[in-house]
Simulated scan of single mutants.
Amino acid sequence: MPALRCGSKIIECEGVIFDKDGTLIDSFKIWPDLIKARVKILQREIGFDNEMARLLEKTMGLNEGGIIRRSPIVVGSREQTAAAMATMLFVYRGIPWDAGMEKVNRAFDLCDQEMGLACQAQPFPGAQQTLKNLFEAGFKLAVATNDDMERTYALMEYAGLAPYLHAYACRNEVERAKPAPDLIYLVCRRLGLDAGQCIMVGDSPLDIQMGMNAGVYMNVRVLGRALCKEEITGSNVITINYITNIIPFLL
């Protein structure tokens, strides 16, 4: 039967559930330009000075040193990131919060249109080959993400990963975002598997906590800029350095 080698660990499972940003897609490389573009469009739409622009960039998660770990863009959903922005507009500009949400969401949508999603779909080196190998070995593969469905489908298509994915679960389809188990429960139903037959692969503490809350067989931490080695430990948590360390083989 097929099994996985994750670092030095041998795992028997049927499904592999991946986080998207920071796990399959090199989001930390993309996010600085995305954040700046979102703020520039919002500045164009409603008008504010450059000091406010820098504050809004930091609110999303960008400062002089790059992307801030565990900031809204890293661990939050698109909706949560927009809410943080709307709160800043309410506090510093006096824009009613609901009106601010409408303006921020419009700016996010305009940003995707003007930048295009193709430039945001940069997979990590080896991600496509890793998914292809797992797919051909007979594993059921899925993505569970705090992003919305339309963007996720498009990004996976542009990244060349969609042909190897059997199912998706996205934030706009469930009641609760990560680290609640809702996304995993949904994607497991779509895969026709129980959570205990799957592993969760992610780079964020929220990914690993979600997997633990859902009762997956094993949680695989991919070390990156969102997760330190010391964060989230347990008997069903293992650590790998790169997604290419997930290798299928026959027992």
Rank of each mutant, 00 (worst) to 15 (best):
V75Y: 15
M149H: 08
A144W: 02
V237I: 13
I184N: 05
I73W: 09
R38C: 05
T233K: 13
L186H: 06
D33L: 07
I247E: 15
Q80T: 14
Q122H: 06
L56D: 12
D98C: 01
M52K: 12
V216L: 04
F28N: 09
D33R: 12
L223W: 01
G100C: 05
C111G: 00
I238E: 04
G94T: 06
I240V: 15
C6N: 00
N146T: 08
A84Q: 03
D194F: 06
F249A: 01
K40V: 03
V237L: 05
G126D: 08
A82P: 10
K20N: 06
T152P: 07
V143I: 09
Q113S: 12
V187T: 10
I41W: 02
G94C: 06
E79Q: 14
L141F: 04
A118F: 06
E102K: 14
E173A: 02
D19C: 11
D21R: 09
M212K: 13
N219C: 15
P179Y: 06
G234A: 09
Y242W: 08
K132E: 10
E173D: 02
D112E: 15
Q197I: 01
K178G: 03
T239I: 14
R221L: 00
D148G: 02
G22M: 05
A154D: 06
E57T: 08
P96T: 06
D19Q: 11
C119T: 15
N213Y: 05
M200F: 05
T152L: 04
P181T: 07
I35P: 02
E102I: 11
P123T: 10
R5S: 14
R5P: 00
E157Q: 09
L183E: 02
A169W: 01
L155C: 06
F48Y: 12
A121H: 10
D194A: 13
G47Y: 08
C188M: 04
M115P: 11
M210C: 08
P2L: 09
Y164L: 01
K9D: 10
G224D: 12
I67R: 11
I232N: 01
G202M: 07
A142S: 09
I67M: 11
